[in-house]
């Protein structure tokens, strides 16, 4: 009887396993497929900008375009691993801010 139940149970499961696996793989594939061409370049640029302030690994920046309630949503997901440290770079800015008086490179580095 146990043997029969084992077989029966297994059968019951296979269609739902198929569904789960499909949902997972398709969610991943759809995200990659529908992406506009500029996404990889945007991701690279974001990485460069964020990389000026904190140490960041490439695989922790994810840029996706999805749809929510009929509107396109650009989602930028930046994860810091526990060790993300501010980068000390005093002369970081090429373009001065409109109010030069408030610019304090030291403070910027600390708040990043």
């Amino acid at each position: 009887m146990d043997f029969l139940r084992f077989l029966f149970g297994r059968r019951q499961a296979s269609a739902s396993i198929a569904k789960e696996r499909l949902q997972l793989v398709l969610a991943h594939e759809r995200a990659g497929r529908d992406a506009p061409d500029f996404l990889p370049a945007l991701q690279r640029d974001l990485l460069a900008v964020i990389g000026k302030y904190v140490e960041i690994r490439e695989d922790l920046v994810r840029v996706t375009i999805g749809r929510q309630n009929g509107a396109s949503v650009l989602e930028i997901n930046v994860e810091f691993d526990g060790s993300a440290k501010p980068i000390e770079r005093p002369q970081r800015r090429a373009v001065p801010r409109p109010k030069p008086a408030t610019r304090r490179p030291q403070a910027d580095a600390n708040s990043a």
């Binding site: 019951q12 499961a13 296979s14 269609a15 739902s16 198929a18 569904k19 499909l22 949902q23 398709l26």
Partner: peptide, 16 residues
């Protein structure tokens, strides 16, 4: 086979 849980149901495929 759907009734036995061996095949994706029409609702499964439609949902996906």
């Amino acid at each position: 086979r759907v009734a036995k849980g061996e095949m994706l149901t029409v609702e499964d495929v439609q949902e996906i």
